[in-house]
Structure formats: C-alpha cells, structure tokens
Design a protein around this nucleic acid. Sequence first.
DNA 1: TTTCATGTTCAGCA
DNA 2: GTGCTGAACATGAA
Length: 264
Amino acid sequence: MPELPEVEAFKRYIERTSLERPVARMEIRNGVVIRGADRPSLIEAVEGSEVLSVRRRGKQLFLELSRGGWLTWHFGMTGRPVALERWDEEPRFVRVKFVFEHGSLAFVDPRMLGRIGLTARPERFIEERRLGPDALDITLEEFTTTFGASKGAIKAALMDQHKVAGIGNLYSDEILFQCRIDPRADARSLSEEDMRCMHQAMRRVLNMAISVGTDFERLPRSYLLRGRAVGSSCPRCGSLVSTATVGGRTAFFCPFCLDRKSFF
DNA sequence: TTTCATGTTCAGCA
DNA sequence: GTGCTGAACATGAA
C-alpha cells in the first residue's frame, strides 16, 4: 500500500481516530517490527502517553508522544494502521496494538516489513537516515540539482529516498509515463524541460492520489496506474505496455509513447 | 508448486 | 562516495 499518498492518508486517519487518547497498554505481538528501541523503553515511552500530533516525511510517519519523544512508523510494503472500537473484530496480522481506554490503534502488517521505533526528534531521525526532502516540498531548483547530477536510471533515482522522500515503484512509473520518459534513461541525459516536467508531474500525481483517497479506480482515465498490469494497454495510445527491471523493481511503461515523444 | 509483490538494507563488486 | 545486483526479511495471492 504505502508510498507518499498512502502514508499521507494513514496520517490523516490516525489524526482522525487516535489523537489525544491515553494509551493504557502497548501490546507487542511480534517483536520483528520493533527497531531502533528496546521493548522496555518503547513501552515506557508509550504507556501513559497520548499522541499529540503526527508528522510525515516521505513514507515515514512520526507520532508525538505527550510524555516526550516520538514514535517512528514505517509501513514497509504491506503495513497499515487500523483503529478499532471495542465491538470491532480484530483483523489478522496485528503486530503491535496501542490500547486506549475504549478502542485501540493497531499496526497491521502481514509481511512484517514495517518498522516501529522511537526517536527524540523527527529531525534527528531524518538526519540519521539521510532522508531527502519530501516529494511535495522539494523545489524545482533542488530537484534539478539532485537529479541532474545523479547517475544511472532515472526511475531508480526517483525511488532513492536519500534524493527525494516518498516515491516508490508505482508512482515513479506514473510520473515518468506522464512525461514520456523511459524509466531506464540515464538521469544525466535528461533536459531541463524533462526536469520541469517530472517535478510538476510528481506534485500533480501525488496530490491527485491523495485527493482520491489513494483509490486507483478514481484516478483520471489517462493514468497508467489505473490498469497497471501485465498485458494491459496504454491509456494514451492503446498499445501494449512493456515491463523492464529497473532498480530491482518492475517498471511499466509504454514504448510506443516514448518513441513518439519528439512528435508531441 | 512457483513466482511475484506499493520497501529497506546489506554484502560484494566495479 | 556512487551505483548495480542479488539476497534477505516473511507472507499472501495468483
């Protein structure tokens, strides 16, 4: 689920359901997802605290605790927060559960690639991990400087969280599709116009995904993301979309649109 | 049964 | 330091 728009949706969901509710008990069902903190200090920091605010940087979430410190949440590939009331049946794969007086907030993650930890300040965590600027905050100038100087495939660079935080496999495909750029193209080979297009498309695509509640069905018909599957056709020209491995992930793109780029 | 999956990290190599 | 590849993590879905 989680790239920037999904994590932004999770942030709003947590703000809507779980702010300022004292945590009576923290249940760690599976310690694998705990990183950057030992259990006792994590429980110590959480129990008796309430979440005062939530911040996001790229795919990373920070929950401010009333007794000091911040919880760090990363959702990996299959993680999501689920707010439960007393009468709700608990979903499968609850790894950590924050139990309030009434109800709870669960960290659900089948594959357990998500991580929960503790940090004194979000800024410190961001610095330690060398996370780049958030994809919705980075200026065109910063963007051009970063990607104009990066070597290798542009898709891999866009997914590099040190360069810009928040873009993953799916949204990088969409951004490049909208700019008719080959995901395998060397970043240094791209023009100023390409840079402008990517920066603009990045903001447009991420904001669009947020505005439709990350429901791909509700994205414009022109989006590659809606029918992203092997054997599907390009929403722009109708020809068969191709795949290629770039940056260790499967890239979807329309080779016909790339070929025609200079004609548009 | 086999392959792939919206992510990150690490080892090994260039 | 940068970049690339492959593997690992752990499990569900096709």
